[in-house]
């Protein structure tokens, strides 16, 4: 990999995947630390926090699990919530999976198992720039994120003994800021001819999110709004 003669910034190697993950690390670290603190405040042990972040590996769901455990919710309700919150991953994986069909089955499972909103955002941007993706690049991206997420959760869990309010540090805001940043990176690659289409779709998304959130949980609204508005996109795009 290091002897790669192709311009390294343009390659899809494991190392390049690691490099492409770096800009997202502050987000993982902020939210991970915030999660660790919240986990400790929810009376979870450091070991439980570590297991949760290593095996569930999903920010929003982990926060919800803590809150529901603290509230004494039944097991079925907690697991169902985790399922609903993470169901959007199906859409993320579905959008990327067609670009990995030439890779082995195990590589595909490996890519899917560590899918996050952020790694999806980075991969979708890379896809627009580069036209293709590779499993090795994706593993570099995913494993870096996974490592930093878990370390940050543990750091947060330990520091939770001294800090009780991660919101005072603005750490929770890392998530919307990251999504906004990823959205801008996506929009950068929209061809001029399609600006109007994308502006329309984003306005539809705002309307759909507001409307659907009145009827369903916002996690469901995210999925329904995306499914509906992406379909509108197919109809409007000629």
């Amino acid at each position: 990999m290091l002897t790669d003669s192709v311009g390294r910034s343009d390659s899809l190697t494991f190392v390049q995947g690691f490099r492409d993950c770096v800009p997202t690390l502050f987000g993982y670290i902020s939210v991970g630390i915030a999660f660790g603190i919240v986990g400790t405040a929810s009376h979870l042990s450091i070991l439980e926090i570590t297991l949760l972040s290593a095996s569930v590996y999903a920010g929003a769901a982990q926060f919800a699990i803590c809150a529901l455990l603290l509230a004494g919710s039944p097991l079925s309700a907690i697991v169902f919530s985790a399922f609903i919150i993470n169901l959007r991953n199906f859409l993320l994986s579905a959008a990327l999976a067609p670009h990995f069909t030439k890779e082995s089955f195990l590589h595909n499972i490996g890519v899917g198992i560590l899918m996050t909103d952020e790694s999806f955002g980075v991969a979708a941007t890379k896809l627009k720039q580069f036209g293709s993706l590779s499993a090795h690049w994706m593993h570099g991206l995913n494993l870096t994120a996974y490592l930093f997420w878990n370390l940050s959760c543990i750091v947060g869990a330990v520091s939770g003994q001294w800090i009780s309010d991660p919101e005072a540090w603005g750490l929770d805001f890392a998530l919307p800021a990251m999504f906004l940043g990823l959205l801008f990176l996506q929009l950068e690659h929209v061809p001029t001819a399609k600006w109007k289409l994308y502006a329309t779709l984003m306005l539809c998304m705002i309307a759909a999110m507001l409307g659907l959130s009145l009827l369903f949980s916002t996690h469901i609204a995210v999925i329904l709004a995306t499914v509906i508005v992406a379909s509108v996109g197919v109809v409007l795009d000629k």
Binding site: V190, T218, A221, G233
Partner: peptide
Amino acid sequence: MKWLSFVPVCILTALVIENML
């Protein structure tokens, strides 16, 4: 495939809005 190509912008917009609600 075209439908899937709209997923990134749509879902990222949704996630930003979800965080504002």
